[in-house]
């Protein structure tokens, strides 16, 4: 008893430290058990009420569809992923570049910001048909739609970050005669980083949503079609198990994007920013 007690205490201490009161195993176990319960309940309802497959498929039907339709779904997933990540990459470069440009001069900001706002507030579904007419290819149109939606949070957050620099630090840079370039590089960009990363998290989710919305609007079939098109197609054909499978793939994609952006944010901020630090109790 006397020999085990300190060991237990140490174990407990590390567990509490790791998860703020909830042990690491429980943090994984609880969501997994919850998921199992939901799937079992779903299955139970389908069996108990004898719901036909074309209204609500059982988990097994969805799993079968996922495996047998994988050649189709996998290719569509790749297409959607490509649109999403290409749009996100362009949104990041464009948003950051424009934010830095606008931070350099009040005139540039006055001239450009209204258009950024107009692009953002006009629903993308409303612009998509026009874009489809003018764009040289459907692929390009999808990319453009996703870019328009994902770019604004990056722009507005980075702009806010570049402006939120401590005024005393700006005075200090002025005192030491720092050039505009050095002030930007040593002061404004690091200060804007947490804001930019918050924008990145939003933009990651929005890029996927916009890619799906654009596909709905474009409705392109054939080799270039993504998961959203498979959703529509499955609905028309009453292939509900495949619809569910496509939906699950979309959700997983969204979760993975969120996890990735959160990880990037954590890695970049963990040394110094309040948002990444555990609170001492």
């Amino acid at each position: 008893m006397a020999a085990t007690a300190p060991h237990d205490a140490a174990d407990e201490a590390t567990a509490v430290h790791a998860a703020g009161g909830v042990s690491r195993t429980m943090r994984i176990l609880v969501p997994v058990i919850m998921l199992a319960l939901v799937v079992i309940a779903w299955w139970g309802i389908v069996i108990a009420y004898q719901i036909p497959r074309y209204i609500l498929p059982s988990p097994a039907d969805v799993a079968v569809a996922m495996v047998t339709d994988w050649p189709i779904l996998g290719r569509s997933l790749l297409n959607t992923l490509w649109t999403t990540f290409a749009a996100l990459a362009l949104a990041l470069t464009g948003g950051v570049a424009l934010a830095i440009l606008m931070a350099q001069s009040k005139w540039i900001e006055l001239a450009l910001y209204p258009y950024a706002v107009i692009l953002q507030v006009t629903p993308i579904v409303a612009i998509a048909p026009l874009i489809l007419i003018y764009a040289p290819s459907t692929e390009f149109a999808l990319l453009l739609c996703a870019w328009i939606v994902a770019f604004f949070p990056v722009l507005s957050n980075t702009t806010a970050g570049l402006k939120s620099v401590d005024h005393n630090l700006l005075d200090l840079f002025q005192l030491y005669g720092a050039s505009r370039w050095r002030t930007l590089w040593y002061l404004q960009i690091p200060a804007a980083l947490p804001f930019f990363l918050a924008g990145l998290k939003i933009a990651g989710g929005l890029a996927l949503i916009a890619a799906v919305v654009a596909e709905f609007a474009a409705g392109s079939a054939g080799a270039g079609s993504g998961l959203a098109f498979r959703l529509l197609e499955s609905q028309y054909r009453l292939n509900i198990p495949r619809l569910f499978a496509a939906l699950i793939l979309l959700s997983l994609t969204g979760v993975v994007i969120f996890a990735m952006t959160s990880l990037v944010s954590h890695l970049l901020l963990r040394r110094w920013h309040e948002s990444a630090l555990p609170r001492d109790r």
Partner: peptide, 8 residues
């Protein structure tokens, strides 16, 4: 205020 750069 100390006016330090928190990231540095």
């Amino acid at each position: 205020e100390p006016t330090l750069m928190p990231w540095a």
